[in-house]
Design a protein around this nucleic acid. Sequence first.
RNA 1: GGUGGGGUGGCCGAGUGGCUAAUGGCAGCAGACUGUAAAUCUGCCGGGCUUUGCUCUACGUAGGUUCGAAUCCUACCCCCACCA
Length: 308
Amino acid sequence: MADARTPILIGPTAVGKTAVALALTAHWPIEVISADSRQVYRGLDIATAKPAPRERQRLTHHMIDRIAPGERFSAGRFALEAADTINDVRARGKLPLVVGGTGLYVKALVEGLFHEPPLDRPRREQLALFTATLDHPTLVRWASRLDRAYALAGGRQRAARAIEIALLTGRSLSWWQRSAEAQGVVEPWTVRLTVPRPVLHQRIRIRAEEMVRRGLLQEVAAALADGAPPEGPGMDGIGVREAVAVLLGRLPKDQMVEAIVIATRQYAKRQETWFRHQIRGDVLTLDATRPPEELAATIAAAWEQTSK
RNA sequence: GGUGGGGUGGCCGAGUGGCUAAUGGCAGCAGACUGUAAAUCUGCCGGGCUUUGCUCUACGUAGGUUCGAAUCCUACCCCCACCA
């Protein structure tokens, strides 16, 4: 228990991370720190495939249901709050297990982002409104002009971010990245779950169909009736936006499942790419076709083996 | 049975004699990404190879015209619409 390492469980949607986490309770006194950019939002439980109440009763999950739909969240905020939570859990003598599909959140926690200076809220929003009107090449041109060392990577969102940082702080994004480097807050011990692509696709289909059966449309309709902005942060998750489109009459209802399946597949693929390339250090990769109990046993054994 | 329209790469869909392995889109695959990340972008995408090039097979099927055809002609098969 004196182990300073924090186990981290990553993998694409629908590989079965939750099941493995639950199975790990047989080996470790864990509490889960969810690194999931959609599950931090309250409501939309079905759409974001949150662990069921029963499962949450068996295994405490943190960083879920933290903010209201429409509110803005960020990787930086996640890292800060997750770090606090991890310390808390440890202080109570439990082992924090980071479980997540949001690669950037895990990275923020493990490697740290740069220390962002305070940004003037209104000016930032104004600027965001402006950059939203620019096309991708224009954004990149601006970003490169404002940041000589701007790496031609990422998309328009990253370019907009570079512009925002430069204009609001007077320093370029790459300057901040160089000069305000942050340290990670945990010592990671990473397990990556993966599954052959055809199996993943099958699991995704099953999950999407079940989601609809369990009342996705009603759930999203209720959220909208509750005042959640149909386009705002938290409402742009896969499943939610398709349901919104159906409710608004923009998507035939009988095409919803297929649309969700495809979007989920594409997302899962991006996650796999991220996990394959963006995780530094050792990663224990396991084929999650095996049953969760077996995987949990393997993970616990590997942890023991590497513990000293 | 008649008349008209149509059959193009995994799917949708342009193309109507050479510049076409065939515009686009979708799906798929690979990749990038330090504060919106379930986001935002990039590349590849008929097969094979010694892969900035070469080669084989391709536009319903079989023939034909032509130096040259997905594109023109003939026959046949199938689909759709309307008429009987």
